[in-house]
Design a binder for these strands. Structure first.
Lengths: 349, 349
DNA sequence: GTTTGCTTCGAAAACGTTTTCGAAGCTATA
DNA sequence: TATAGCTTCGAAAACGTTTTCGAAGCAAAC
């Protein structure tokens, strides 16, 4: 005899009453409810997940899908864990559990997600590392699973929150131009992540603001790794005219870039200005420190959680007027990697 | 009409036959099995997790518990994701799913794990960040849940694999002594992680090998963060006699340590030798690079997965003679932070 | 005394799957 | 032909929970 039946027998009471007491239904006596709760605590009873999920058709669990394959563009520190923590604080309020679904490096993300959803493992999902055309969006919509994306996919309309890639790229161009640069390169992801599209858009917009023509050779696709950064560095050195600054859409390649420049006899901050998208241990610890942008990832997680809940029928009323599509602002952290360019075309110290 | 019934009706066949065909039972005709599988693929049928788990009393899912609260001692890069990837490759072979259970920073790890286990969310678990006395061990044993720990707990006997903290600490002392050091400090975790105990043990053993007395003031507990590292640096500077080298049980405090030394007018590698436990982006990118130890985290994950399976009745036969308790070797990566000490008591370049 | 309404409880069905076990159909053997 | 054995199938039970719905008990109102 196990589970709720053992508890019922132990109390000389029916299974239904126990269940109702545990779930705080209205048609239970306050006294019996108290007895049930005490006995449950004493015997360490916790409702079996499978039984409950089967009956209710819901798991009270939300999945946070991440990908362990692509070193995610923003994962040089505990990016996802920080976001996760924010999401978690929201869900805890509603007794929802959050689990992480990490797609292994050798599996197709859409297949993986499809399997998890079809199995009915979760009631809703958060997806990340969104592609320009991401099959997961259609999959989730077809399955009628509530979801939100950390980063939108293309121009499809769906709930998302997104770091301000476009704004940061544009603002970075402005900053560099103001400091005397005109030959400005940009490093973009090697895959078709949507953020690459947005970053390029912002970059072009920034150039246009200053009537600087777009030079395709200056938009360089870079693997999100040290090796990718080294590759980027040698590419930059070989360009003619050589750019006096580069904007990185993520910071992971920065160490390799630094090394390539050093090997080429050039000095970061003097011969090449650098701005990176997100502040992280890397941008802080490299010498010179990299000018970058910062935000509260925990707050971002909270927003993700609340917005997701606002799309779920059972929780909608708690979060009535959430914006379902939202650009998340970033704040400039000025450092030493992008000083003013002096007259002779070299960066001034 | 949903699920397996819809599929059965669509094929004009009984539910039981469909189920048996899908699960490859022996008492099904090869022809019908083929038809069922094709129809299932066509209709996109995937067995409902709750129904299956309820009937079988097993979820075919393993949980990997990590903690988002304590910045885990070894998480400056994608430590857990790398390990996860290895575990995943093993489980995929057996059609087991792996999910991550990240304990939020405001919840007690043992409570959290207890809840997840009681709910029957997973059949087995991998735990990490093990404490010296970790209540989770007893909890899992009481619940009779197969598990393995990444890092043992105290002297209790349970399955574990552990990075070689003791060996690395001892070897690091040897290396520093050989290079002329005698006043060697060690940085230990601020919490009661078991690895701290082991690291200290190895450190003391190393000292003893060279008949150097243990100086308690040289064993410094350090928060696993930049601030903790800065604190460590100021402490080291204030010690008398000031240590000529320090061994870090993890690398996260290194940047703060560097900054503190710099602020104090001292030079890393010259006035203070440094060795860190694990190679990571931090140990590679700081100047000078830090001598550290390396291993394949993916292989470690594979070992974890296989050992866990060998403790599970249903899979035992596939992994017969696995060692259930195992120290995972690390390989020295010599760098520039711990040069020979010269005659005048300063580190030689 | 009868009716009404309210509170509290419990029997039973349902969720979707797997598994047991008996039966049906067929072939081979005596 | 009768029997035995083998293959294939399907009815039904079971897993643990929630929820529906009827009933019992009691007090108040008529």
């Amino acid at each position: 005899m196990k589970g709720i039946r053992a508890l019922a027998r132990h109390l000389n009471i029916s299974v239904s009453t126990v269940s109702k007491a545990l779930n705080g239904r209205f048609d239970t006596n306050a006294e019996t409810r108290k007895r049930v709760l005490e006995a449950a605590a004493e015997l360490g009873y916790v409702a079996n997940q499978a039984g409950r999920a089967l009956r209710q058709g819901a798991t009270r669990t939300v999945g946070f899908m991440i990908e362990s394959n692509q070193a995610s563009p923003t994962d040089s520190d505990n990016f996802f864990m920080a976001v996760y923590d924010g999401v978690q604080t929201v869900f805890r309020r509603h007794h929802l559990d959050l689990i992480v679904l990490p797609c292994a490096s050798d599996e197709d993300p859409a297949d993986y997600l499809g399997r998890m959803v079809a199995r009915g493992l979760v009631d809703a999902v958060i997806i990340s590392a969104t592609r320009r055309k991401d099959p997961r969006i259609a999959l989730l919509e077809k399955a009628r699973i509530p979801f939100i994306a950390l980063g939108r996919s293309g121009d499809v309309s769906h709930p998302w929150i997104e770091l301000d890639f476009e704004g940061v790229a544009r603002q970075s161009v402005h900053r560099l131009v103001e400091r005397g640069h005109r030959n400005i390169a940009v490093s973009l992801p090697a895959t078709d992540l949507n953020l690459g599209y947005l970053f390029l858009k912002g970059y072009k917009r920034g150039l246009k603001d200053h009537a600087i023509p777009f030079e395709p050779a200056y938009a360089i696709h870079t693997e999100s790794s040290e090796d990718g950064g080294y590759q980027l560095g040698t590419t930059l050195i070989g360009l003619s005219p050589r750019p006096s600054a580069v904007i990185l859409s993520y910071e992971l390649p920065a160490p390799g870039l630094y090394r390539a420049l050093h090997d080429g006899g050039l000095v970061i901050g003097k011969d090449l200005g650098v701005i990176a998208f997100r502040e992280s241990p890397i941008t802080r610890h490299l010498v010179p420190r990299i000018t970058s942008y910062r935000t509260s990832l925990k707050d971002l997680g909270v927003a993700l959680g609340e917005t997701l809940l606002s799309t779920m029928p059972d929780f909608r009323e708690a979060y009535p007027d959430s914006e379902h599509q939202r650009i998340w602002p970033m704040e400039l952290v000025a450092a030493d990697s992008d000083p003013y360019l002096d007259k002779r075309g070299r960066n001034r110290k």
